[in-house]
Amino acid sequence: MNRRSHQEETDAFVSFSRALELFKPLNKNAFNYRVRKKEIATKEDESGKTLYGVQSVIAMRNSLLKRLSRIDKQPEVITDWLQPTDIPASLALDQTVYHEMYLAEAEVYMAWRRKNPYISMAAFDARDRRTCYAYIGLIPLPESVILDVLTGKRDEKEITPDEILTYDQPGEYCVLANSAVVHPDYPELISKVIDAIGEYWLKQYPEKRIKRIYAQTVSEDGRIMAQKLYLGPLYVLQDQELIKIEDAYVLDLDGVAASRIIRRFQEKLRAKATYPSK
C-alpha cells in the first residue's frame, strides 16, 4: 500500500465488521464499551448505518494495549498508612513526579500525622518499603475549615495540628483529599490505594464513617482521582448566588455514586449493616 492510500484509509470510516478487525486482539465488548463512551469516532452513512473512524479505532486499540502491558508489568506492592519513617520515600516519589521535593509541606504534614496517623495511604514496593509508588492524603477536618481552604480564605499549610481531627470518637467525618500522587509508569496503582482506604473505613463502619470527601485538584494525578471517583463540582452560596469553585470537588457518600469504586464500597457498607460480623 502506498503512502497516499494508507493516509486515505486512516482518515476513513468503515463498517462495524471492519472496525472489529482493526480493533483486534481486543474483543467486541471492549469495542462497544468505547463506542458508548464516545471514545471512538462514529458517523452515519446515507442509509443511516453507523460507520467507525479508522484513526480513532486504531488509536484506542493501541492505548488499551499499552495500558494492559503496564498492568502486566506492575510491581508487587503492599498498601499501608504513611509513617514518619516513610517521608523520604514519599519525597522521592514527589521528585519523580514533580521534579522537586516539597520539604516545607512535608514538615507540616508530619505534624498532622503526629495528631492522626491515618491521614495518607500509600502503595510501597513489597520487597523494599523505601520505594513508594503512590499515595493519597485524606485530612479529617471540621467542614468549615475545609470550605475555607477550598474557597481561598485560608492556605492549606496554615492548618494547625489542633484542627486535625482524630478518629477516636464515633460519628461522621468530612475529609479533604489534599494530595494524590502516583508514579507515571504505574498509574493503575492509585486504584489499589483507593481500595485500601475503603477497606479501612469498612472496618470502622458503622461506628465511624466518612460523610463527604472534598478535593481541590492542582495536579494531573489529582484530576485522575477526581475522575475515578466521579467527584462533583463544588458550589457555595455567595450573595444569594451559587458560585462554582474552580478545581474544587465534593462527593457525598450518602448519595447514589456514579463511580464503580464508590458503588462497590457503598454495597459493602450496606452488607455489613445488614449482616454485621459477630
Rank of each mutant, 00 (worst) to 15 (best):
M225V: 09
M225A: 07
M225G: 02
M225S: 03
A226P: 00
A226S: 12
A226Y: 02
A226R: 09
A226K: 09
K228E: 05
L229W: 05
L229T: 02
L229K: 01
L229Q: 02
L229R: 04
L229M: 03
Y230L: 11
Y230V: 10
Y230R: 15
L231F: 09
L231P: 00
L231W: 03
L231V: 03
G232V: 10
G232H: 14
G232M: 13
P233K: 09
P233L: 11
P233V: 02
L234G: 02
L234V: 08
L234A: 02
L234F: 05
L234C: 05
L234T: 06
L234D: 00
Y235M: 13
Y235C: 10
Y235K: 15
Y235W: 12
V236A: 07
V236P: 01
V236N: 06
L237D: 06
Q238N: 13
Q238F: 09
Q238K: 11
D239T: 06
D239V: 02
D239M: 09
D239Y: 11
D239W: 06
D239E: 13
D239F: 07
Q240V: 06
Q240C: 10
Q240W: 11
Q240M: 12
Q240G: 06
Q240E: 10
E241W: 07
L242G: 07
L242A: 11
L242Q: 12
L242K: 12
I243M: 08
I243Q: 11
I243W: 10
I243A: 07
I243N: 03
I243V: 15
K244S: 10
K244P: 00
K244L: 09
K244H: 07
K244C: 09
I245C: 08
I245G: 03
I245S: 04
I245A: 04
D247S: 14
D247Y: 09
A248D: 00
A248G: 01
A248V: 00
A248Q: 01
Y249K: 07
Y249H: 08
Y249V: 04
Y249C: 03
V250G: 06
L251V: 03
D252I: 04
D252T: 11
D252R: 07
D252S: 10
L253S: 00
L253T: 03
L253C: 04
L253N: 01
D254W: 12
D254M: 13
D254L: 14
G255A: 15
V256L: 13
V256N: 14
V256F: 14
A257W: 05
A257L: 03
A257C: 06
